[in-house]
């Protein structure tokens, strides 16, 4: 039996800060983003980036949340019991079993992008697994307005995975290869994911190279997204989050269409646009934990230390509940 190659499979990414001892930290806050296609966990120690992990969402959201967390935490020996505060976000946010609170992915992507791109960011393009959002934010990363397209997989991460499989091109090579062409082709007219296979096959049969077909698909996705951005009347600095944020075949074409260059992460940054939601959630978790500490102190109680809040309801739970000194 030959092993089938899954061209859609993107590499799962994990990071642990090399020189941070979380055992010395007074708070461990976690953000978990359970999306429709991928799940991420970001762990902060006293607000500093300790670890993150990005993995594929499985059939069970609670399992995916745990898998994302463990991928980040296990290499450094951190367990659920060490968490001071956790925030769940994303499409499956209510299925993060250890979350103290849930916050929408819109707010979390805004906060995360603000952190990655700096306070000048005013517009975020979040290209997720199954939807696409344009979010306008203020200088603190607070959501002012947003629009979304969630009824069509074309132009989303899932759509890109289908194209990768149909053309047998590893998904991480699509962006680069879509520029290895003699001449930019017209965008494919039908970006429907359902018809991608027959569309691509007929183009290949008509003599197009694989790279040219990729270019035509990337251009079509960029066009769809650019339309959404223009509806938001964007002029100022923008940042791209989500998995497709890593596909230059789409992002560069979006930049060309709207005539604005996206703010990028520094080349040496360990961060990844795909973790923006979980990063935002972890920052909210940090703020919420500090707020709970202050309130506890003001109420005359002892400030909660680095204690566990195991379990916890997925719906907004009492802040700092279940803190053992």
């Amino acid at each position: 039996m030959t092993e089938t190659q899954h061209f859609w499979r993107w590499s799962e990414k994990t990071y642990q800060a090399p020189d941070l001892d979380w055992r010395a930290a007074s708070s461990i806050t976690v953000g978990v983003d359970v999306g429709s296609v991928s799940s991420q966990a970001v762990i902060l120690a006293d607000g500093k980036l300790l670890a993150f992990n990005s993995t594929r969402t499985g059939s069970s959201s609670p399992d995916s949340a745990l898998r994302a967390f463990r991928g980040a935490a296990e290499p450094i020996g951190l367990t659920l019991d060490d968490i001071s505060y956790a925030v769940g976000t994303g499409y499956g946010r209510v299925n993060v079993p250890f979350a103290d609170r849930t916050i929408t992915e819109i707010a979390c992507h805004a906060r995360g992008a603000n952190h990655m791109g700096g306070p000048s960011i005013r517009t975020i393009l979040d290209m997720g697994g199954q939807d696409c959002k344009v979010i306008r934010i203020d200088e603190r990363g607070k959501v002012l307005n947003f629009i979304m397209n969630d009824k069509c997989a074309a132009g989303t991460g899932r759509g890109m995975e289908v194209i990768a499989d149909v053309l047998s091109v590893p998904i991480e090579d699509i962006g680069r290869r879509s520029f290895e062409i003699d001449e930019e082709p017209a965008a494919v007219s039908n970006v429907c994911t359902v018809f991608a296979k027959s569309e691509a096959t007929s183009l290949l049969r008509a003599g197009w190279s694989v790279n040219k077909v990729l270019a035509a698909y990337c251009a079509a996705m960029a066009q769809r997204v650019a339309g959404l951005i223009e509806r938001m009347q964007v002029e100022r600095e923008f940042f791209i989050t989500g998995g497709i944020g890593k596909n230059i075949g789409v992002t560069r074409r979006i930049e060309r269409l709207i005539g604005v260059e996206a703010i990028k992460l520094p080349a040496d940054s360990v961060l990844d646009p795909q973790i923006a939601g979980a990063l935002g959630a972890s920052l909210f978790a940090h703020s919420l934990y500090r707020k709970a500490q202050k309130e506890a102190a003001a109420a005359g109680g002892t400030a909660p230390g680095n204690g566990g809040t195991p379990g916890g309801a997925a719906e907004p739970a009492g802040e700092g509940a279940g803190v053992a000194g």
């Binding site: 006293d46 607000g47 500093k48 980036l49 906060r111 952190h115 603190r140 990363g141 607070k142 961060l271 990063l279 920052l283 909210f284 703020s287 919420l288 500090r290 707020k291």
Partner: peptide
């Protein structure tokens, strides 16, 4: 109160 008090921005 959930915004603008990231004391550790530079570390990220």
């Amino acid at each position: 109160d959930l915004f603008g008090e990231d004391l550790f921005d530079e570390d990220l």
